[in-house]
Design a protein around this nucleic acid. Structure first.
Length: 196
DNA sequence: TAGAGGATTGAT
DNA sequence: TCAATCCTCTAC
């Protein structure tokens, strides 16, 4: 399977990338343990709106990766417990990213169930905090590039617009009116998307 | 330097 | 409905 080129992430329209990522395949290869999952749910974030860590171009120690050129991983800890995995997009200085919220596992079931401490593969990657754990992603992945490192994204299945459902993003009520932006995208009728 | 809160999850 | 749990940011 072909790895997406860095130019894929340089699109200036972050919501278009969020949609384009649906059907693509997230791959981790950690100490020889290969895991792969089709991306079935994403959310877009931009410095232009309040839901984003880098709102108003505010750079901090945590979010500085978002200001880099597209094609890097932005991983951070949420609620002190969960690692969330984002893909940095756009050019340098334009802080935008796509959060991966759910995967459909296709390879590495044994590693995933082991990491999740369960025997069932069901709903094992249906949520942003769960998919990082199942794939073995943690904060040490912050800033890694998505072309040559242990984590990358490959071309996957074709998705047409009719299969894509759009909705408001989850868990950012504090963002005021921006919380209502239709920037969450997922595959219609897919059983692997996160619980709402 | 202390205090508040968060792009979540799973158990109660 | 709520606790877990700790890093990050803000205010003092």
């Amino acid at each position: 399977m072909k790895v997406l080129p860095q130019t894929f992430y340089w699109d200036k329209n972050v919501t278009r990338i969020a949609k384009n990522l649906l059907g693509k395949v997230l791959v981790t290869n950690i100490q020889g343990k290969k895991s792969r999952g089709i991306i079935v749910e994403t959310e877009a974030y931009s410095y232009k709106e309040r839901g984003c860590h880098a709102y108003n171009n505010k750079m901090t120690a945590r979010n500085q990766i978002m200001f880099e050129k597209g094609g890097l991983a932005y991983v951070y800890l949420c609620y002190g417990i969960h690692h969330l995995f984002n893909v940095v997009t756009n050019g340098s200085g334009k802080a935008e990213a796509v959060l991966l919220r759910a995967l459909q596992p296709v390879e590495g079931f044994a590693w995933m169930t082991h990491r999740m401490n369960t025997s069932s593969i069901k709903r094992i990657t249906s949520g942003p905090g769960k998919l990082t754990k199942a794939m073995g992603i943690d904060r040490t992945f912050n800033g890694k590039d998505l072309i040559t490192s242990e984590v990358c994204i490959e071309e996957g299945m074709k998705v047409n617009n009719k299969q894509i459902v759009t909705s408001a993003r989850i868990g950012i009520d504090y963002a005021g009116p921006d919380a209502k932006l239709p920037w969450r995208f997922y595959l219609k009728d897919n059983e692997w998307i996160s619980k709402v």
